[in-house]
Design a protein around this nucleic acid. Structure first.
Length: 175
DNA sequence: CCCTGATTCGC
DNA sequence: GCGAATCAGG
């Protein structure tokens, strides 16, 4: 096929109209359509003359972001759970096999981060998987990640746990 | 900093 | 017509 770029086919325009009318943001629509930037979407929206949509009760534009949060129990994630998240982004570096170890204190230290969906996940957020990836409730940690790493402070330690540390921690946990 | 849509303008 | 760059704003 000589035409490399998928442009505005009828279907794509239809979907664009629908999503835009539904109140999705340009970037969200761009992601949904794929192969286009939010600028492209905005440009098209204007050309189609459907800018300035009916912004009802603040539909789905600016998301809450402040309100949502786990209200109760600090849901400690048992280390064993990591067994069923193999397909999630795996750290390539000094990953140590996780066995039934890790002192409870560590897990309780997890501040119930603001778990996020893949859509809400941003570059600066911890990508530590939480839960079953095959389930709809699957989330990522979402806490602020350390510059240069895909994980927050806490999860970076768990993920990149050096052998030496591991041994030491064990001792530590014991006593 | 994160994000939003609006506009401009070279292609 | 298209969309990156830019602008203006939250």
């Amino acid at each position: 096929m000589t035409d490399a770029g998928i442009s505005w086919t009828d279907e794509r325009v239809e979907l664009l109209k629908k999503l835009w009318t539904d109140g999705l943001s340009a970037s969200q629509i761009a992601t949904e359509l794929g192969n286009v930037t939010r600028n492209a979407v905005i440009g098209k929206v204007h050309r189609l003359g459907l800018s300035g949509r009916a912004k009802d009760k603040a539909a789905a534009e600016q998301r809450p972001r402040k309100a949502a949060r786990a209200p109760s129990a600090p849901v400690a994630i048992p280390p064993q759970n990591r067994t069923n998240v193999i397909m999630a982004p795996v750290p390539r570096a000094p990953v140590i096999h996780v066995e039934p170890m890790l002192p409870a204190g560590d897990d309780l230290a997890i501040p119930v981060s603001e778990r996020v969906t893949i859509m809400e996940l941003r570059e600066s957020m911890c990508r530590w998987p939480m839960g079953d990836p095959t389930k709809a409730e699957f989330r990522f940690c979402g806490a602020h990640s350390i510059t240069g790493l895909p994980y927050c402070d806490h999860h970076a330690r768990v993920a990149y746990q050096p052998v030496a540390d591991r041994k030491r921690e064990r001792k530590f946990a014991r006593g």
